[in-house]
Design a protein around this nucleic acid. Structure first.
Length: 434
DNA sequence: TCTGGGGTCCTAGGACCC
DNA sequence: TCTGGGGTCCTAGGACCC
């Protein structure tokens, strides 16, 4: 049996912990560049604001409905997430942190009333961290996800599901007819693994609810759709196909990509941006103790600016040897940029991805044919770089081609509604007045 | 004027090999 | 005239997730 613990409207809930005045008001958190809504309070959902809605299409709701928008503050959300996860872990013996606001818990070997136990944990998270969660329980991860959806929806929209399932829903405890009724009341698009496209195809085939999907023959689903959807069907039928990932496996690729605050035309600005993205990606690579063998660089115009000439290209450059050195990786990324850059376009986005990753302690000894940066010194320099930035803040020490902070960054991000780092920055601490 | 970022997995097609 | 079979690797693209 699995549980899924998921923070409600997570980013908005984090902001509300420190600004209780936002309770009861429609609030959204915006993506980078204040581009679109990536988290919505229940009140904002009730206004009809969709996930991913562009800000410029909804900003009029500030005047008409008192909508509040905040720039994403990921340092804060990450810290709140850590606190929430450590409490959620108390539900069972093994936890998989699936995303910033969700974790699966393996309930194997846990005795007693799971629903009661979940309600207690939920209450503790609410009281200690200030975040309201939904908890779903089921014999497979897909059913736990579905139960979680039911738990949250039953609370938010009275009448959608029987009220006893609000906040905590245990699908493993129910009579078959009772469970089927819940699946029948759930739209097929809510099932984990069914996105927009497949939802439309299923609808065409007359499959409208989670129950319809659960009743399909897996072999037919595999033939007509894919092995992926087949797995979903089996999971809905109660056969576990997706196991709990206890230790988070090393990433297969690491990316740093950004949209620009303003269109960029010059190669020099792109070089600054690509240098920074490559450095950040290299840092992430060192954090997971891996080396990369290939560096992908891409640049693109904005597909939304239909009046603009469009251009999008990427290129992959191999590294001479597996490396996590910011200088090697940046050098490759800049060479790649040079190869794909064409003047005359309004560039809107660029990125660097590291591919062909392998554990740092596991690569071939090499024949020293040149006097290039030897591995031990490289390592120490990068360790020092990371240590300085850890101690004095990100960006304290960087490669010169990133550009100096005093220069105006034509490619920088727009973040006009950023809240303080209440829990991650001394200067952001809340002040209590007696 | 203004539309995020970071991942995973699967599939199809082409190049290449023996 | 008539032109195999089986495998790997790579890339691009599509679908999904939060």
């Amino acid at each position: 049996m699995y549980a899924l613990v998921d923070g409600n409207n997570f980013y908005v809930s984090c902001e509300r912990v420190f600004r209780p005045g936002l309770n009861g008001r429609p609030v959204v958190v915006l993506s980078n560049n204040d581009g679109c809504a990536i988290a919505r309070s229940n009140e904002a959902k009730a206004l009809g604001i969709k996930m991913g809605a562009p800000w410029f299409q909804i900003h009029h709701l500030q005047q008409s409905d008192g909508l509040v928008a905040l720039s994403a503050n990921f340092a804060l959300y990450g810290d709140m997430s850590d606190r929430m996860m450590s409490l959620a872990a108390g539900l069972g013996h093994r936890q998989e942190i699936y995303s910033i606001d969700e974790s699966f818990i393996d309930l194997t070997g846990i005795r007693g009333d799971m629903t009661l136990r979940s309600r207690k944990i939920r209450q503790r998270i609410l009281q200690w961290i200030g975040i309201a969660c939904g908890i779903g329980i089921g014999p497979t991860k897909t059913l736990a996800k579905l139960a979680n959806h039911i738990a949250k929806t039953a609370e938010r929209q009275p009448g959608s599901y029987p009220v006893q399932h609000a906040q905590v829903c245990h699908l493993g405890n129910l009579e078959p007819w009772e469970r089927d009724a819940l699946l029948q009341a759930t739209e097929v698009g809510e099932v984990w693994g069914v996105g927009r496209r497949i939802r439309a195809q299923l609808k065409d085939a007359g499959i409208h609810t989670a129950l319809d999907l659960a009743r399909l023959d897996p072999a037919t689903v595999k033939r007509r759709w894919s092995v992926v959807l087949e797995r979903t069907v089996r999971e809905l039928q109660g056969t576990p196909c997706i196991s709990l990932e206890h230790a988070s496996p090393a990433k297969h690729e690491i990316a740093c990509t950004r949209s620009f605050g303003h269109a960029v035309r010059e190669l020099s600005a792109l070089q600054e941006a690509v240098t920074e993205f490559a450095s950040r990606a290299a840092h992430k690579l060192r954090q997971q103790h891996s080396h990369a063998t290939q560096v992908l660089t891409f640049i693109r115009t904005s597909p939304f600016r239909v009046q603009d000439l469009q251009y999008s290209r990427s290129t992959v450059l191999p590294l001479k040897r597996p490396s996590a050195d910011s200088r090697h990786i940046t050098q490759a990324a800049l060479l790649g940029l040079q190869a794909i850059y064409r003047p005359g376009y309004n560039y809107a986005k660029a990125g660097v991805m590291l591919l062909g990753l392998s554990p740092a302690n596991q690569h071939q000894q090499e024949l020293a044919l040149d006097n290039d940066l030897a591995a031990p010194e490289t390592n120490r320099l990068m360790l020092a770089l990371d240590a300085v930035n850890q101690r004095f803040g990100p960006g304290t020490l960087s490669l010169a081609s990133t550009g100096l902070a005093s220069d105006p960054r034509t490619w920088g991000m727009k973040q006009e509604r950023r809240t303080p780092g209440y829990t991650t920055d001394w200067n952001g601490l809340a002040v209590v007045r007696a």
